[in-house]
């Protein structure tokens, strides 16, 4: 079941840019004001994880793609894995949560090459450690 809300062309273009250009560090997605489509709210080249987390508001849902860079254990070098984040804080209202949850698949399906997926309701669920844990498990 889905809401019928679709991602705009820009959503996919920015994702491609992040994936192939190796310049962008993350893309934050949200809903258009008329709630009919998914739009890009922000892109950034800043690799600081905390800055990325700060883009996730306390009382509103977001989707995001973050280019997660990490060290392989034993000094085998660094790797990058694209991480998709579904952010739906408990304090967001039902309407907001409902639209984001029911539209997620329409966006996620169009983004090829995602390795890690995180569904978080509080900041403690989206830490570097939690993502690293998933990255290494694969």
């Amino acid at each position: 079941m889905s809401s019928g809300v679709q991602p705009s062309q820009e959503c996919l273009e920015k994702f491609q840019e992040l994936k192939t250009g190796k310049k962008l560090s993350y893309v934050i997605y949200g809903l258009s004001d008329d709630k009919r489509s998914i739009i890009v709210l922000k892109t950034s080249e800043d690799k600081d994880f905390d800055k990325f987390i700060a883009e996730l508001p306390e009382k509103e849902c977001r989707w995001a793609v973050y280019d997660f860079e990490f060290e392989l254990p034993g000094g085998e070098g660094t790797r990058n894995k694209l991480t998709f984040v579904m952010w739906s804080p408990d304090d967001a209202n039902v309407r907001n949560k409902m639209v984001f949850a029911s539209s997620k698949d329409a966006l996620r399906r169009r983004l090829e090459g995602i390795h890690i997926e995180i569904q978080a309701t509080e900041y403690s669920e989206i830490t570097k450690e939690a993502i690293l844990d998933k990255a290494l498990r694969r």
């Binding site: 079941m1 739906s88 804080p89 039902v94 949560k97 409902m98 949850a101």
Partner: peptide
């Protein structure tokens, strides 16, 4: 027809 379980999950902000 909306599936009750899915609607409840969505209302809690969760696709999964």
């Amino acid at each position: 027809f909306g599936s009750s379980g899915v609607l409840s999950a969505f209302a809690a902000g969760k696709p999964t």
